Amino acid sequence: MSFAKKLAEMGVELPNAPAPAANYVPFVQIGDLVYVSGQISNGPDGFITGKLGADMDVAAGAAAARTCAISLLAQVKAACDGNIDRLVRVVKLTAFVNSTVDFTEQPKVVNGASDFLVEALGEAGRHSRSAVSAASLPLGVAVEIEGIFQIK
Protein backbone atom coordinates (compact mmCIF):
# COMPACT_ATOMS: atom_id res chain seq x y z
CA MET A 1 0.00 0.00 0.00
CA SER A 2 1.26 3.48 -0.79
CA PHE A 3 2.05 5.88 2.03
CA ALA A 4 -0.54 8.32 0.68
CA LYS A 5 -3.25 5.63 0.78
CA LYS A 6 -2.24 4.50 4.28
CA LEU A 7 -2.37 8.07 5.61
CA ALA A 8 -5.81 8.54 4.02
CA GLU A 9 -6.95 5.25 5.55
CA MET A 10 -5.80 6.57 8.94
CA GLY A 11 -7.79 9.77 8.36
CA VAL A 12 -4.63 11.89 8.17
CA GLU A 13 -4.44 14.59 5.52
CA LEU A 14 -1.00 16.15 5.32
CA PRO A 15 -1.32 19.94 5.59
CA ASN A 16 0.57 22.36 3.40
CA ALA A 17 4.16 22.39 4.61
CA PRO A 18 4.53 25.03 7.33
CA ALA A 19 6.57 28.08 6.32
CA PRO A 20 9.72 28.84 8.30
CA ALA A 21 9.31 31.32 11.14
CA ALA A 22 12.75 32.92 10.79
CA ASN A 23 15.80 33.09 8.49
CA TYR A 24 16.15 29.43 7.49
CA VAL A 25 14.73 27.00 4.94
CA PRO A 26 12.23 24.28 5.89
CA PHE A 27 14.35 21.51 4.38
CA VAL A 28 17.60 20.87 2.54
CA GLN A 29 18.13 17.99 0.15
CA ILE A 30 21.60 16.48 -0.24
CA GLY A 31 21.59 13.53 -2.61
CA ASP A 32 18.82 11.19 -1.52
CA LEU A 33 18.61 12.65 2.00
CA VAL A 34 16.23 15.40 3.10
CA TYR A 35 17.07 17.28 6.30
CA VAL A 36 13.88 18.81 7.70
CA SER A 37 14.11 21.77 10.08
CA GLY A 38 12.46 21.51 13.48
CA GLN A 39 8.67 21.29 13.33
CA ILE A 40 6.81 22.58 16.37
CA SER A 41 3.67 21.14 17.92
CA ASN A 42 0.75 22.74 16.14
CA GLY A 43 -2.83 21.50 15.96
CA PRO A 44 -6.08 22.66 14.38
CA ASP A 45 -6.55 25.21 17.17
CA GLY A 46 -3.02 26.62 16.94
CA PHE A 47 0.22 26.00 18.77
CA ILE A 48 0.21 23.22 21.35
CA THR A 49 1.92 24.82 24.31
CA GLY A 50 2.85 23.60 27.76
CA LYS A 51 5.61 22.22 29.90
CA LEU A 52 5.81 18.49 30.58
CA GLY A 53 6.04 17.84 34.29
CA ALA A 54 4.21 21.09 35.11
CA ASP A 55 1.00 21.72 33.21
CA MET A 56 1.02 18.90 30.63
CA ASP A 57 0.94 15.12 31.03
CA VAL A 58 2.71 12.47 28.94
CA ALA A 59 -0.40 11.63 26.87
CA ALA A 60 -0.89 15.27 25.88
CA GLY A 61 2.82 15.57 25.12
CA ALA A 62 2.69 12.45 22.92
CA ALA A 63 -0.27 13.94 21.04
CA ALA A 64 1.76 17.12 20.53
CA ALA A 65 4.71 15.05 19.23
CA ARG A 66 2.37 13.34 16.74
CA THR A 67 1.52 16.74 15.24
CA CYS A 68 5.24 17.37 14.77
CA ALA A 69 5.53 14.08 12.85
CA ILE A 70 2.66 15.09 10.58
CA SER A 71 4.39 18.41 9.86
CA LEU A 72 7.64 16.58 9.16
CA LEU A 73 5.87 14.42 6.58
CA ALA A 74 4.29 17.53 5.07
CA GLN A 75 7.79 18.95 4.57
CA VAL A 76 8.99 15.67 3.04
CA LYS A 77 6.00 15.70 0.70
CA ALA A 78 6.95 19.25 -0.37
CA ALA A 79 10.55 18.12 -0.91
CA CYS A 80 9.21 15.32 -3.11
CA ASP A 81 7.21 17.69 -5.32
CA GLY A 82 3.94 16.63 -3.69
CA ASN A 83 4.48 12.87 -3.91
CA ILE A 84 4.93 11.38 -0.42
CA ASP A 85 5.36 7.96 -2.02
CA ARG A 86 8.90 9.02 -3.02
CA LEU A 87 9.80 8.60 0.66
CA VAL A 88 12.08 5.60 1.20
CA ARG A 89 12.46 5.75 4.97
CA VAL A 90 12.72 7.85 8.08
CA VAL A 91 16.40 7.89 9.05
CA LYS A 92 16.59 9.91 12.30
CA LEU A 93 14.53 12.18 14.52
CA THR A 94 15.90 14.63 17.05
CA ALA A 95 13.19 15.69 19.47
CA PHE A 96 13.09 18.44 22.06
CA VAL A 97 10.55 18.29 24.88
CA ASN A 98 9.69 21.43 26.85
CA SER A 99 9.95 19.98 30.35
CA THR A 100 10.77 20.64 33.95
CA VAL A 101 14.19 19.73 35.34
CA ASP A 102 12.79 16.69 37.15
CA PHE A 103 10.71 15.33 34.23
CA THR A 104 12.31 12.16 32.82
CA GLU A 105 9.67 10.76 30.45
CA GLN A 106 10.88 12.48 27.26
CA PRO A 107 11.11 9.15 25.37
CA LYS A 108 7.44 8.40 26.14
CA VAL A 109 6.46 11.83 24.85
CA VAL A 110 8.43 11.36 21.62
CA ASN A 111 6.83 7.95 21.15
CA GLY A 112 3.81 9.94 19.94
CA ALA A 113 5.81 10.80 16.82
CA SER A 114 7.64 7.49 16.50
CA ASP A 115 4.52 5.35 16.91
CA PHE A 116 2.66 7.46 14.34
CA LEU A 117 5.47 7.14 11.78
CA VAL A 118 5.66 3.36 12.18
CA GLU A 119 1.87 3.03 11.96
CA ALA A 120 1.73 5.19 8.83
CA LEU A 121 4.88 3.99 7.07
CA GLY A 122 5.49 0.48 8.40
CA GLU A 123 9.14 -0.59 8.38
CA ALA A 124 10.06 2.58 6.47
CA GLY A 125 8.96 4.53 9.54
CA ARG A 126 11.43 2.86 11.91
CA HIS A 127 14.22 5.29 12.75
CA SER A 128 17.00 6.21 15.10
CA ARG A 129 16.28 9.14 17.42
CA SER A 130 17.17 11.34 20.33
CA ALA A 131 14.64 12.63 22.87
CA VAL A 132 15.99 15.44 25.02
CA SER A 133 14.67 17.94 27.51
CA ALA A 134 14.57 21.66 26.79
CA ALA A 135 14.05 24.39 29.38
CA SER A 136 11.85 26.21 26.87
CA LEU A 137 10.94 26.05 23.19
CA PRO A 138 9.89 28.70 20.65
CA LEU A 139 6.46 30.22 21.31
CA GLY A 140 6.13 28.04 24.42
CA VAL A 141 5.35 24.90 22.39
CA ALA A 142 5.51 21.52 24.08
CA VAL A 143 7.56 19.67 21.46
CA GLU A 144 9.84 20.38 18.48
CA ILE A 145 11.19 17.63 16.22
CA GLU A 146 13.63 17.71 13.30
CA GLY A 147 14.29 14.80 11.01
CA ILE A 148 16.38 13.19 8.31
CA PHE A 149 14.59 11.26 5.57
CA GLN A 150 15.73 9.20 2.59
CA ILE A 151 13.83 9.77 -0.66
CA LYS A 152 13.98 8.45 -4.23
Score class of each variant (00 low, 15 high):
38 G>N: 06
108 K>Q: 14
53 G>W: 02
82 G>H: 09
151 I>R: 12
51 K>Y: 00
26 P>A: 15
5 K>N: 09
130 S>A: 09
78 A>Y: 02
114 S>F: 01
49 T>G: 12
119 E>K: 15
93 L>K: 10
53 G>D: 00
103 F>I: 04
143 V>N: 06
53 G>F: 01
3 F>Q: 10
43 G>F: 05
11 G>S: 08
145 I>P: 03
71 S>K: 14
78 A>L: 07
59 A>M: 03
86 R>V: 00
80 C>L: 08
10 M>W: 05
19 A>K: 15
23 N>K: 15
95 A>R: 12
110 V>F: 09
94 T>S: 14
138 P>Q: 07
133 S>T: 13
34 V>M: 08
85 D>A: 14
58 V>I: 15
116 F>N: 10
130 S>M: 03
125 G>R: 13
125 G>L: 11
23 N>L: 10
147 G>A: 10
94 T>Y: 12
88 V>C: 11
78 A>C: 05
116 F>K: 12
105 E>D: 12
146 E>P: 00
117 L>M: 15
137 L>P: 04
21 A>S: 13
102 D>Q: 09
114 S>Y: 04
18 P>E: 05
135 A>W: 01
146 E>K: 15
67 T>F: 00
104 T>M: 06
128 S>C: 10
144 E>T: 14
5 K>H: 06
138 P>N: 06
57 D>L: 06
